[in-house]
Write a protein that binds this DNA or RNA. Structure first.
Ligand SMILES: [Mn+2]
Ligand SMILES: [Mn+2]
Ligand SMILES: [Mn+2]
Ligand SMILES: [Mn+2]
Lengths: 159, 159
DNA sequence: CAAACAGTTTAGCCTTGGCTAACAATATTG
DNA sequence: CAATATTGTTAGCCAAGGCTAAACTGTTTG
């Protein structure tokens, strides 16, 4: 308390909206987001490599660069990281492949991504918009919410 | 095409899930996410400062550090950035305040955040989970989806 | 009113994820 | 099969967003 504040301890002015959450809970919100940001790019790479392998039979660095709209140098550097994390195997000038761990991550990410995408479409969001939103949202959806989204989509499809 | 691929041009194996989107559309997805990531931390700071001002009458760097679970040094550096962006005004060792532009951003972010949070609760997500998910999702929800979320929540409340 | 405490800033370090430019390897094609 | 085009790598740059340690300022209290 440094600045003079005329309303410091009055009954309660016209506070709009919800109150602030308790400090620990609030901190948890931000920490969870920071955490998601550490892994989401990795997940997107692995998921994309999995998709390219499934749909095209091979995953080349140039395809990734084009699909992500990023320079080839950026992809090359990222592949080195994925290698160090033992998520992909790569021989220079050859297609990438996923390790066991990489395949597992790709499947999990793809499943999560699809649930979010299908949910948004079931909600009534146009396909192109749903795809864009899902690409970002997928990394910030808890398992609890994911389960609810899936149920919602199934309900929707029955009717 | 470098690696030998026995299925290269066969009818179409057992491709699971959706096909890959066209390259340009796919690239747009990732680009939009990268874009959101550039502004989201700024938005969270401004939104939090606005909330602290509204609910506490002042916004101190130490409060922000506690609520974000981040070091005071990190906050201090960020405040310099917010100052350069002319979103906040600050005098050394005094409470922060929002500029006009800062207030506008705070309101927009808060409104968006609330719509997402209330939507998740309306869907049936538990409050604590909804708060965590909303903190991340809010930055990746298009205006189109936001409008649909808002309508959904209102419908829910009528019934 | 001096000392202790709490809050703030600065300096310097690190990792991530972008970029461009230059170079190297492979693939395609006249 | 040589020239060209495509693809991949490396080096070196940058900004953002974390951190710790140390210095400084303002507030509270003995
Ligand atoms: Mn994805
Ligand atoms: Mn994604
Ligand atoms: Mn947020
Ligand atoms: Mn927010």
């Amino acid at each position: 308390m440094t600045d003079f504040n005329p309303n410091a301890s009055l009954p309660a002015p016209s506070i709009p909206g919800d109150a602030l959450p308790p400090v620990e809970q609030h901190a948890q919100q931000y920490a969870t987001v920071r955490n998601a940001h550490e892994t989401e790019l990795i997940e997107d790479y692995v998921e994309l490599i999995g998709d390219l392998l499934a749909h095209r039979g091979e995953a080349r660095a140039a395809d990734i660069a084009n699909r992500m709209a990023v320079s080839q140098a950026t992809v090359s550097k990222m592949i080195r990281r994925l290698n160090e994390l033992e998520l992909v195997t790569s021989k220079p000038y050859r297609s990438l492949f996923l390790t066991e761990a990489g395949q597992k991550m790709a499947e999990t990410s793809r499943a999560r991504h699809d649930i979010v995408l299908h949910f948004l479409r079931a909600l009534g969001v146009r396909d192109a918009t749903a795809r864009i939103d899902a690409e970002g949202m997928e990394h910030h959806v808890s398992d609890e919410t994911l389960a609810i989204m899936q149920r919602f989509t199934e309900q929707q499809q029955k009717s």
